[in-house]
Amino acid sequence: MLVWSRSGRLVLWVLFALIFGVLFLAPLAVILLSSLADQWNGVLPNGLTTEHYTDVISGSAGRAVKASLITGFLASALALVSGTWAALSLRLQGPALKRLLGLLFFIPSAVPSVSVGLGLLVAFSHPPLLLNGTVAIVMIAHFVLISAFTFGNVSAGLARLSPDFEQVASSLGARPAYRLWHVTLPLLAPYLVAAFGLSFALSMGELGATVMVYPPGWVTLPVSIFSLTDRGDIFAGAALTMILVVATLVLLLGLERITKRATGS
């Protein structure tokens, strides 16, 4: 323990509560209240209602949730496969090449997502790569934006993995594919699940690139929220936001349970 005095600990707890409360909880609480507000003219809503939830669920929310979940799953799965592949391959390269390629992988995350969307739109609007107006271009946009994070997570896991495991497996007669499937990937499982969870969460909240490329039939939750709030329908936007938060949380908690069961921790 870094702080021994009782008063010192109390001050730290109050400071933590203030920072956490103001920066994290307050915005979420306001959105939650907005999603349930009948009217909001004063400090607190005038009355509470579930009408906004009924409206958005009976309207386009179902389709938006489905689009977001499918996009998040597929883009994250693709990013997980390619990020893992890249991390495993780069591990075998020399330090200079490893650094260079690792850096390249992170470039999309340093570019504004709107620019990534614009780039994809321009690149894929002419034959032979005509993807403009398709679901595929949304998937690609999400994949480009999140793959750096899966790569980073898996690389961190690999760096912590003792080479002894794989070497002992090889000495016992395990060929590379058998070793990868039965030793390396199971040992990386917590990092793979964490990478998938992070990618999924990022994808679920992605807006900048998606608004540039989404086709009319594939409106994701953030795009729906943006449209609603842009039209001034704040309460419906807030209800949709809460649906997004719950959907993401349920999935992340599910992944955490899987990780715990897999690692026995």
């Binding site: 000495s171 016992l172 007669g173 897999a262 690692t263």
Partner: peptide
Amino acid sequence: RGLGMVVQNYALFPH
């Protein structure tokens, strides 16, 4: 190579 190997930290597969 047909070998068996034991290393310092045993490297038993934890899963």
